[in-house]
Design a protein around this nucleic acid. Structure first.
Length: 466
DNA sequence: ATAGGGTTAG
């Protein structure tokens, strides 16, 4: 429509730009970023770069669409007199980039500049709070909220606090806030509570939330139901899970993908793999989570080959696997003894699916090779990795060298490990493993650490270690 | 023009 407007020579105004820029940030299309940048240029052409709404739309756009933090900072700095909306969009962007501390700093700066935060600002700030360092700041925000809210808590702010405490496993704090929200609790409140209770290992308590919801007339929706099904998945009996399945059908929520995904998980955890499979088949457009849940369910029930076959179905159908998919696949290959298949999948994850192996994938991959006794390949992998290997990776690999009596690889791995981690205690621990292997092989070994100027020798003739 | 909840691994 914007193009039609241009062709019709109708000059766009600030409202036009605010609307069309917002469309770019919420479209979910990769072209959104490109289109938004072009519109940014048009803003200057029409001399609207000082309009507050346009500036705010741009801040929000760069916050949501650009991977570059500088884009966001520039857009915010270009705003002449930032108002509460500008600051909130900016804080939201900082949080999205994982800059918790900066988000709190911006909040302080905002208040210092005389702009009063609103409930949107506080919710944004609390959601962005992920590190335990920031939890301390968040507790101060709680105090600030209590001090400034004249009557009762805003629902969104209250829910953000409940969620915050739940995320940090502080269920007492979450419950206290929820209690203070007596008349305004909604499905958001209960979803956060249920998720938190699941995380601290209290699935029965999580399921009790359903009773509260019924009593208070709060509707169970797909989000809360997903959490309840997740709780039911960990119970010893399948009954509550099946009741929730019935419940989801009665509520008309059984075709929601998140509910189906939780059902797949729930049936898998109770070893009802046929049910899990039929739920997957019932989904019109399975998400990556749906596939992951089934592949994982099959693998953890020992059906490694079938798990890999479902992975094939997934990719042949054009679904995009993610980092979790490959973790599950590697795990299945390791425990199913399907090493060559695992190597192929590991090599194809970046090449064919654009998923870069993370540290955890390398750990799984090394574990797979180590278990299978393919230690030379494992040693090559640990050397060629684009990330610095963990100490635990070396420890595990050395343990496999010992297990498989591969002293040659073991010595090389130990030497490399010592170059990276030259601390003496580590050195001793590793060497005792290698010397153990040397002893089994009835040969001596001498390893020297350049950095710590330490060395250990194991002398076969005297069975002594120096 | 700005905000709050979900399901999958180990």
């Amino acid at each position: 429509m914007f193009r039609h407007m241009e062709l019709a020579a109708v000059p766009p105004n600030a409202f036009t730009f605010a609307g069309i820029i917002a469309a770019c940030s919420s479209s979910g299309h990769p072209q959104g970023l490109q289109a938004g940048r072009q519109l940014h240029a048009r803003v200057f052409k029409f001399a609207l770069e000082h309009d507050t709404s346009v500036c705010n739309a741009l801040v929000d756009f760069y916050s949501k669409s650009s991977a570059r933090l500088l884009d966001l900072v520039h857009a915010f700095n270009a705003t002449d007199t930032p108002n509460v909306v500008s600051w909130t969009a900016f804080i939201s962007g900082l949080a999205r980039h994982g800059r918790d501390e900066d988000a709190f700093a911006a909040f302080a700066e905002m208040r210092a500049s005389g702009v009063q935060p609103n409930s949107f600002t506080v919710s944004t700030l609390l959601k962005g709070c992920t590190s335990s360092q920031c939890f301390v700041n968040a507790a101060k925000i709680h105090a600030y909220v209590l001090k400034t809210s004249l009557q009762s808590l805003d629902v969104s702010v209250g829910n953000s606090l409940v969620d915050l405490y739940s995320r940090f496993a502080r269920m007492d704090g979450a419950w206290t806030v929820a209690t203070s929200m007596a008349l305004v609790r909604d499905s958001f409140t209960y979803t956060s509570l249920a998720k938190g209770l699941n995380q601290v290992g209290l699935p029965n308590k999580a399921l009790e939330m359903i009773v509260h919801m019924f009593q208070e007339g709060v509707h169970v929706d797909s989000f809360s139901l997903a959490c309840f099904l997740s709780a039911a998945a960990t119970l010893p009996s399948i009954e509550p899970g099946m009741q929730l399945h019935c419940c989801s059908v009665k509520l008309g929520l059984s075709s929601q993908v998140s509910v189906s995904n939780s059902l797949i998980n729930m049936y898998s955890k109770h070893k009802c793999l046929e049910d899990a499979k039929s739920v997957l088949q019932s989904i019109r457009e399975p998400s990556v989570v749906s596939w992951n849940a089934l592949i994982s369910g099959l693998a953890s029930n020992g059906s490694y080959y079938e798990a890999l076959s479902v992975f094939e179905d997934m990719t042949l159908g054009g679904a995009q696997p993610d980092a979790i998919t490959f973790s599950i696949v590697l795990h299945a290959c390791t425990h199913g003894g399907l090493v060559d298949i695992g190597i192929n999948h590991f090599n194809s994850m970046r090449k064919h699916f654009g998923v870069s192996p993370q540290r955890s994938h390398y750990t799984l991959f090394l574990d797979m090779l180590g278990r299978a006794g393919r230690l030379a390949e494992a040693a090559c992998t640990i050397e060629a990795m684009p990330i610095q290997p963990d100490l635990s990776m070396y420890r595990n690999l050395l343990a496999f060298c010992e297990l498989h009596n591969d002293l040659v690889v073991g010595e090389n791995v130990a030497r490399k490990a010592l170059e990276l981690y030259p601390s003496d205690t580590v050195f001793q621990n590793m060497l005792s493993g290698i010397c153990g292997a040397a002893w089994k092989h009835d040969r001596g070994v001498h390893v020297h650490s350049m950095k710590s100027d330490a060395a250990i020798s194991f002398d076969v003739s005297t069975s002594s270690m120096r």
